[in-house]
Design a protein around this nucleic acid. Sequence first.
DNA 1: AAAAGCAGCAACCGCTTCGAA
DNA 2: TTTCGAAGCGGTTGCTGCTTT
Length: 302
Amino acid sequence: MGCKPSDKPKAKYRKGLWSPEEDLRLRNYILKNGHGCWSSVPINTGLQRNGKSCRLRWINYLRPGLKRGTFCKQEEETILTLHRMLGNKWSQIAQHLPGRTDNEIKNYWHSYLKKKVAKAEEMEGQTKSQYTSTSSSEILECSPSPQKPTTCFNSSHESVQKSPPLVSQLDDLSKDQSCQRSPLPKILFAEWLSLDQVHGGSFANNIGDPWVLKEGFDHSTTSNNLQADHDLGHGFVLNDEGIFGSGFHHGISHHHGLGLEMINSQFKFEEQISGPGFVDFVSGGDLYSDFNLQNDAMYFYK
DNA sequence: AAAAGCAGCAACCGCTTCGAA
DNA sequence: TTTCGAAGCGGTTGCTGCTTT
């Protein structure tokens, strides 16, 4: 929106998988400038992609804060529960799984969970007994069909959305992920902090302070959560000490040399941000009023 | 070792919603 | 109020790599 028609020359857009170079261009551009109008991104970056493709690539793959990797048990439970309540509202489900994208959840559902549920239901039908799996027992007791969330909480999607108790329930659900029991520390961005919003607030002043990761930080296991991105591990400008200090780097590089590059690249935009401290920014501002430190995990809710 | 089948995932397509002019 | 472009969303496709035969 807000783009002039003249900004959109007819172009033959490239399709298919993104190359590391394209990723790099897009990432660097957005980290530096923010995406603004997506249709202008390909023009400004020189990418032979349409804005829609750029947006998708950023949201599903390049955006900092994405977890990637396999879903933990509790995430799986959350998806099953939310899918039971909301149906195929992947974006809404994703909102309750910080660091996961709707596409990722959708794929996980179609490739794994759907079959699992179907199998469980089949077993249930055969035995007429309660399905006792810890991952879906409650869900299966509630409703027989994953596609029609008609029981349990509300009878329609609309009522789900409008019902404050359920919303609270969902919030509790998302904040009570079992991944919190994981020994892995997590920094999770419910929504990536838009540069437009970040401008004027100081991320840089405090982000480099080790306090950010001191809570429950385990050098030996962190890399699991900071999965190296094979497409992105090249050519990023790195700080000597990095955002999190040498200890953090040490922890990552033990397992994945590329991991720290990603982390650094994700926060490479720090020089653009100036102003009040990050803590104030996160906890006191209107935009990010829901700052939540749970065990070793930090959640930033927008 | 090669071919076929399968699963997982990234990306595209098309429809809907939103918001500015 | 209408129109139109951008963004958001969900369904689907197709590529890639792994497993099986």
